[in-house]
Computed example of a mutant assay.
Amino acid sequence: MTSSEGPRRAAVLGSPIAHSLSPVLHRAAYAELGLDHWSYERHDVDEAGLPSFVEKLDAGWAGLSLTMPLKRAVIPLLDEISDTAASVRAVNTLVLTADGRRVGDNTDIPGMVAALRERGVEKVESAAVLGAGATASSALAALAVLCTGPVTTYVRSRARADEMRGWGERLGVDVRIADWAEAAGAFAAPLVVATTPAGTTDTLAAAVPDAPGTLFDVLYEPWPTALAAAWADRGGAVVGGLDLLVHQAVLQVEQMTSRSPAPLAAMRAAGEAALAAR
């Protein structure tokens, strides 16, 4: 992109959205890539407001990042959806093509894979997932790439158990179900993915064994979580939510700007600085 090409816009949409680090990450990428006429904002948009927002996107727009509660609501508004996004029925990236088509993708899944591979996790024989929400389905999709054996998911209800079994069948993952009351049993797995809201796993911190495997805790604020801190104290490898956020944003920047590779180090440094300032 040169200055003669005119301004280009991108944004993150969701509700609530004020906490989003996406503008920090994407703007850091633009600065590093010399995309002086690119802007990236945040807009508080709920499911009811999404169709009108998308309809108003003109040729100046490059794309959107989408967070809750819009990842499924956007699908009917798209012209095309990637296989990755279709596999979990969730879109976090909308790219507008030169001819105005709206293409949806999910960079959370390859972002998870990339974050784990960055820490040396290429393949595991088994894994455990704490929680059964939307992020857990993305975790299963990532584990379909990384895990060669069963994935035990720890859930609180029969409905959630049925959902996770369904995702396992859809994604080709051997999902085993366990009750949340037995969640400490997850820590015997070589890879544990915690997908629950802040505070949910705090009571499990005392149960972390000596020399645990790898923990991927998808939270980034507050950080470290009690579980992540206990895990690191006992010598385990920890991958955090900022790692995921940065890696999925790298892929978004590459898709929206057609520049590759996106500046991972600069984006991570900007994210770390923003969190430290909060």
Rank of each mutant, 00 (worst) to 15 (best):
156 R>T: 06
193 V>H: 03
128 A>K: 05
176 R>K: 14
154 Y>C: 06
49 G>M: 06
18 A>C: 02
88 V>D: 02
51 P>A: 08
271 G>K: 09
74 V>R: 01
238 V>I: 10
26 H>N: 09
278 R>G: 09
265 A>R: 15
141 A>S: 13
204 L>W: 07
113 V>D: 10
47 E>S: 13
21 L>E: 02
260 S>R: 15
118 E>N: 12
277 A>K: 15
4 S>T: 14
246 V>S: 00
86 A>D: 13
275 L>D: 04
1 M>A: 15
12 V>M: 08
225 T>S: 15
27 R>Y: 04
173 V>I: 10
14 G>A: 08
207 A>K: 10
184 A>M: 00
39 S>E: 14
190 P>R: 12
275 L>I: 15
190 P>Q: 13
193 V>F: 02
57 L>T: 13
219 L>D: 00
125 E>W: 05
27 R>K: 14
200 T>F: 10
120 G>F: 11
260 S>L: 03
267 M>L: 12
151 V>P: 06
193 V>D: 03
217 D>W: 02
211 A>F: 02
14 G>P: 03
46 D>K: 06
26 H>L: 10
99 D>F: 12
7 P>C: 07
44 D>L: 05
176 R>Y: 03
124 V>S: 12
4 S>R: 12
76 P>M: 04
14 G>C: 06
105 D>G: 07
33 L>S: 07
13 L>W: 02
270 A>M: 11
222 P>C: 08
175 V>K: 08
